[in-house]
Write a protein that binds this DNA or RNA. Structure first.
Length: 699
DNA sequence: GAGCACTGC
């Protein structure tokens, strides 16, 4: 412990923290900041008036670091030192050092906005700039004013970003704590290769033939490239002259690999054998592989981004940032001096790469975050003026407000409704929270809980694709249900109901190619959601998982509840073919994703109206996870869409509000229309729809 | 009829 560099700085740290409400710590890898900062402050009396909270972006980190600190202090984990992550709180009244994920701290802040139990809050790994960290940074800025006398905030950051964080916090002091990395020699290519797979391959073979022992870590963008790389590397190494170099093991490493394949990188290699680890950016921060001496960096990463003007996500290969490039290089210097081969010229690094990765808050849909901030009831809060370290675009915030308004989470003046307040309590996207509340009113809460939980885990549900077992949810190999033609949400419900009937049998998951880890997660989420719903309704709800019901049920109530939740995610089929047009603020032409189980009728036509969980632009714009709904449910939503006044929602001035009112009055109001008999639903829907389309055409 | 970076409440 005494060898950790950070301990030499104890006096300086304590002095700076005592004299300043906020301090930025630049701590390189191996500085010991994650384990030592909390212990130093505990030693020096900062836990007398409260607990020290240390946030981590990842759950495993919160658990492993707290375990380590408990060990170093010689206490039982969960007593003086503990951790809190989703589904698991290992703290007690005795706890004075608490490690937690930033998401958990945000939840705590919802019920206790001043976070009074904490005397110190350390935001660790803030340079990773997760969505939650960025929101916490904004909240901390307010909180230190509110609790000027009794709260200390420490933020750890990366070299390239520290100044910016300091400026955000009124130029607070920055402390540099050196790390314990060995030097890493950086070699740049003279030019960008035509194919970075080929370039990486050549570099890897060169290392293997000429360089002394030491493992090689190769950064690629995704599963496809990794598989190609692994195959080609195996071929080339076999073709090398027998005995000309040591043995080699080649290991792929990416997120959709089953856990038992992932942990292979942690077992030491046989003697006189070099390992090649071909990885995504999972090896950049999440997993640390020991023994790496050489890093090959393609300079690219796959990034998911949200486009607020279309409501569509895309997954793009983009250049990494300087922070990422340095992080990757650092992976070569953990055990001894290493070397990093960058497959791009130094000019590209200097001139093309951004200093830091675009923060998640500028790449995501913000409906959930905006609802969260609104329900905190901060005084003088105006979401458009909230002080973010890197503010999201106006367009993105406006998109979030529109979504929230359509699902009744905020009222037309932009204030949070009582419904919205309840929705914020649920750890779900607002669309699914709204679905649960509606389902509760329609008597299908139990089914909706299952659907929401299944969707929370969708990506971890299916086992990784493999060449010979092309099993899909789409073509159920055996017992897997097909959603009875109603679509993917219904299928997810049916899958869980069967699993429930098998008494949560793990072998059933394996037989049906469902990831055990994913299904267990679903079960936990469902339990958590049930508990929160029970708390809201004071325990009077039926949340029990139903047995799979008789064939032929039409899931009408559930589909209607989904329609309320997904009010901003409706689509209407176009005439005479199976393409759809979304019914949002900006209409998009989209297709149902080919993996969907939605079934056409006898004439080969898909349902006239559907809701979708997500739009994703890959080779074409697709709707992922769709569910058939009925036209009669669409009308009221379209009316609401029609009457939306965006400037009022975002707290615009009353002047601009009046202008819009005038504009609105040119349109026939529902009431001023020829009076409709209340049972003639369809005609009213059609009228609302026409007005909606006419208005859009005018824009 | 096509394709899945990584986290998290």
């Amino acid at each position: 412990m005494a060898h950790l560099p950070i301990l030499q700085f104890e006096e300086k740290i304590v002095e700076t923290v005592e004299n300043n409400p906020v301090v930025v710590i630049i701590g390189e890898t191996g500085s010991g900041k994650s384990t030592q900062l909390s212990q130093i402050l505990h030693r020096r009396g900062f836990t007398k008036s409260g607990t020290i909270a240390v946030t981590q972006p990842r759950r495993v980190a919160a658990v492993s670091v707290s375990r380590r600190v408990a060990q170093e202090l010689g206490v039982t984990l969960g007593e003086e030192v503990g951790y809190a992550i989703r589904f698991e709180d290992r703290t007690s009244e005795k706890t004075v050092i608490k490690y937690l994920t930033d998401g958990v701290l945000l939840r705590e802040s919802l019920s206790n906005p001043e976070l009074n139990q904490y005397s110190v809050i350390i935001l660790d790994e803030a340079h990773e700039r997760s969505l939650n960290t960025d929101i916490l940074l904004g909240l901390m800025k307010r909180l230190i004013k509110l609790r000027a006398s009794n709260l200390k905030v420490l933020i750890t950051s990366a070299t390239l970003d520290g100044e910016k964080v300091s400026r955000f916090f009124s130029n607070c002091p920055i402390l540099n704590v050196p790390g314990k990395l060995y030097p890493v020699e950086i070699l740049h290519s003279s030019e960008r290769p035509k194919s970075y797979i080929e370039a990486a391959l050549k570099t890897a073979i060169d290392i293997h033939a000429r360089e002394p022992e030491g493992d090689v870590l190769i950064f690629m963008t995704g599963q496809d490239d990794i598989e190609k790389m692994v195959t080609k590397l195996e071929e080339r190494i076999q073709n090398l002259d027998e005995g000309s170099c040591m043995d080699a093991v080649i290991l792929p490493l990416h997120g959709s690999l089953p856990p038992e394949m992932q942990v292979r990188v942690f077992s030491p290699p046989p003697p006189n054998c070099r390992r090649f680890i071909v990885a995504t950016n999972i090896a950049e921060t999440s997993l640390t592989v020991d023994g790496v001496v050489y890093v090959i960096d393609s300079g690219y990463v796959k990034q998911r981004q949200y486009n607020p003007s279309t409501g569509m996500y895309s997954l793009d290969v983009v250049q990494i940032s300087k922070v990422q490039a340095n992080q990757r290089a650092g992976r070569a210097g953990r055990t001894r001096p290493g070397r990093c081969y960058r497959l791009y010229p130094s000019m590209v690094y200097e001139d093309d790469f951004l200093d830091a990765t675009i923060p998640e808050i500028q790449r995501s849909s913000l409906a959930g975050s905006v609802l969260y901030l609104k329900s905190l009831d901060l005084p003088d809060i105006n979401i458009l003026k909230f002080d973010f370290l890197d503010p999201p675009s106006f367009e993105s915030l406006e998109d979030a407000l529109k979504q929230l308004y359509l699902i009744d989470a905020i009222s037309e003046d932009g204030s949070v409704t009582s419904l919205g307040r309840i929705m914020a309590e649920l750890p779900l996207e607002p669309s699914l929270s709204r679905t649960l509340l509606e389902a509760n009113d329609c008597g299908c809460l139990s089914q909706a809980l299952t659907v929401a939980a299944m969707l929370s885990a969708e990506t971890t549900l299916l086992s990784g694709r493999s060449k010979n077992t092309e099993k899909k949810r789409k073509n159920p190999p055996s017992d897997l249900p097909d959603g009875s033609g109603w679509g993917d949400h219904i299928q997810l419900l049916q899958i869980y109901e069967i699993w429930h009937q098998t008494d949560y049998n793990i072998n059933w998951c394996k037989d049906n190619n469902l990831q055990v880890r994913g299904m267990k997660f679903v079960k936990e989420v469902r339990k958590q959601l049930s508990q929160i719903m029970q708390k809201i309704a004071k325990g009077s709800l039926d949340v029990k998982t139903s047995k799979r019901q008789k064939e032929g049920q039409d899931y009408r109530a559930l589909r209607k509840a989904l329609c309320s939740g997904y009010a901003n995610q409706l689509a209407e089929r176009m005439i005479r073919h199976n393409g759809y047009r979304t019914l949002g603020f900006k209409s998009q032409v989209v297709q149902v994703h080919p993996s969907s189980v939605l079934k056409p009728d006898e004439d080969g036509m898909l349902p006239n109206y559907v809701v979708y969980h997500e739009l994703i632009a890959t080779s074409r714009p697709y709707m992922c996870n769709v569910c058939a709904i009925e036209m009669a449910w669409v009308g009221p939503i379209l009316s609401k869409l029609d009457e939306l006044n965006v400037s009022k929602l975002s707290g615009g001035t009353s002047q601009s509000h009046e202008q819009t009112q005038v504009e609105n009055s040119n349109l026939p109001k529902e009431d001023s229309h020829a009076p409709q008999p209340s049972d003639d639903h369809n005609e009213r829907i059609l009228a609302a729809r026409e007005r909606f389309l006419a208005r859009k055409a005018k824009k």
